[in-house]
């Protein structure tokens, strides 16, 4: 009877108010059978990390369209580390230039970054490949 559900926090950090993308992602993950905690707009990295810990999510997904990605991703990772919660994965989406994606991923500031045009299959299968093996280990 024990069925471990993937739990994801979808948040929207910073001041831009365009949350259509975040809502589409939330809905997509819901339809893939995940529990999605939607935290709403204008979140600080501190709020996102605190929510991720309380909700015990496996993954944080943030949408950044403001251009602040080089600040926001490293900050979230730093806070996760401070809380001994480095096992929580970080994924992002938005308008992020290719060279920034490379440098964020290489520096370990995010596990995956998706840009406009990414398909739901792509995103969902990335999450499942990352998480389903580790979830089974727990049980």
């Amino acid at each position: 009877m024990n069925k471990t559900r993937i739990r994801v926090l979808v948040g929207k950090p910073g001041l831009d108010g365009h949350d259509r993308g975040a809502k589409v992602i939330a809905r997509m993950l819901r339809d893939a059978g995940m529990e999605v905690i939607y935290s709403g707009l204008h979140q600080t990295p501190e709020q996102i990390v605190e929510a991720a810990i309380q909700e015990d999510v496996d993954l944080i997904g943030v949408s950044v369209l403001s251009g602040a990605h080089m600040t926001i991703f490293p900050r979230i990772k730093e806070l996760l580390k401070e809380q001994n919660a480095e096992d929580i994965l970080l994924m992002g989406g938005g308008t992020i230039p290719e060279e920034d994606i490379v440098s964020l991923i290489e520096a370990g500031h995010a596990e995956a970054l998706f840009t406009p045009g990414a398909t739901s299959t792509e995103i969902v299968s990335w999450i499942k490949s990352k998480l389903e093996s580790s979830k089974e280990d727990v049980v």
Binding site: K3, R5, A26, R27, L29, R30, D31, A32, G33, M34, E35, V36, I37, Y38, S39, G40, A51, E55
Partner: peptide
Amino acid sequence: TGGAILGDRI
């Protein structure tokens, strides 16, 4: 699907 959107934190 068993999935859910949990939005009370908003």
